[in-house]
């Protein structure tokens, strides 16, 4: 890797201050599993002058429950979330999503904050400098999205504009279905953003110099069935082709609450609100599940090579509902 200066931030405020000071010339590092790839590939328009380490901030790696809320510090590692009895007992969909990420080694390093903030996986965007690259594209602020006319098999089927990459985060999908909030801190203070609002087509919702501090997840009814299904080309390592998270509550066979989120289909996790509404008050059976699945994908507009993702998404929604 090309050199950079390195600063161990000791508090969140110090990190924010450093970001402000470096005016876009510094990047944050938590687990490093995504950032180092970017630095090695040198595909971003600007190589950072400074890397600010967040792991040196103590006390931001907690997983705790308090007042009906699960709180996860931004630096909590995915492996800690997987192992947390708190998460696996009450927020199983999140434990399953975290467990589906990459490999044991990656989960031992990657943090939940990093998992939410990781950059997109588009192979045009990430095309490495050293093999005749890098490639310019809409996301880098120059030219069209190359996936539209290129190989877009893993790209978005809904809600995109300009850039058709999908949100690669698995935990985001689980957090979206759990109605979680991302709490961020910045020079202007702190604010909370719903996970579903955190992602956008060209960037996430972080304003300049803001940092994710924690995630808060409201308690889930104990009778709810939580499911995370991830379709990948291979079981471990791969990013989702499509994923679905669901939280479904039934009383005597009748659905009283349904929450469904789709992953890897759009710039962020997508709540299938109409499908959720459709299920409420209904008796869940094959046909109902299939209808809800149709509804969940009603807004899909595939590109030239990714219509198959619609079929997979429908299947996963159906299977998640019927679980």
């Amino acid at each position: 890797m090309r050199s950079f200066t390195h600063i161990n931030a000791r508090t969140l405020d110090e990190a924010i201050e450093l970001l402000r000071k470096y005016r876009g010339r510094a990047v944050l590092n938590a687990g490093g599993t995504d950032l180092l790839s970017a630095l090695k590939g040198e595909y971003l328009s600007r190589y950072p002058e400074t890397v600010i380490n967040l792991k040196s901030i103590s006390g931001l790696d907690y997983v705790s429950e308090d007042g009906g809320l699960l709180r996860i510090g931004a630096l909590a590692k995915l492996s800690d979330i997987v192992r947390s009895p708190l998460v696996s007992s009450g927020y199983r969909v999140l434990a399953e999503a975290a467990r589906s990420v990459a490999s044991p080694q990656i989960r031992n390093a990657a943090t939940i904050g990093g998992n939410l903030c990781q950059d997109i996986r588009c192979w045009y965007y990430r095309y490495p400098r050293h093999i005749g690259g890098p490639v310019q594209c809409a996301r880098k602020g120059s030219g069209p999205c190359l996936a539209v006319r290129g190989d877009n098999r893993y790209h978005a089927i809904m809600n995109s504009r300009k850039c058709f990459a999908v949100c690669p985060s698995d935990t985001a999908v689980a957090l979206a279905v759990l109605d979680a909030q991302v709490h961020v801190s910045g020079p202007e203070g702190d604010r909370a953003i719903a996970v579903t609002d955190f992602f956008g087509p060209l960037a996430n919702a972080l304003r300049s110099n803001e940092i994710v501090r924690k995630i808060e997840v409201p308690k889930v009814s104990v009778s709810a069935v939580q499911t995370f299904l991830k379709f990948t080309v291979r079981e471990p390592i791969d990013f989702a082709v499509v994923s679905v998270a669901s939280v479904i509550t039934r009383e005597e066979g009748v659905c009283t609450d349904a929450r469904i989120a789709l992953g890897a289909v759009a710039p962020g996790p997508v709540r299938a609100s109409k499908a959720e509404e459709m299920l409420k008050g209904e008796r869940i059976d094959e046909e109902m599940a299939a209808q809800a699945a149709e509804q969940a994908l009603a807004g899909a507009r595939p590109l030239s090579k990714n219509a198959y993702k619609i079929e997979i998404a429908k299947t996963l929604v159906k299977r998640a509902i019927l679980r």
């Binding site: 994908l297 990714n306 619609i310 997979i312």
Partner: peptide, 21 residues
């Protein structure tokens, strides 16, 4: 035999731009 090819062979996807067949 990618998922895309299998589903296409089964007639379960359109060719994109316009939704599933």
């Amino acid at each position: 035999v990618t998922p895309e090819r299998v589903l296409k062979t089964l007639g379960k996807t359109g060719s994109g731009k316009g939704g599933a067949a």
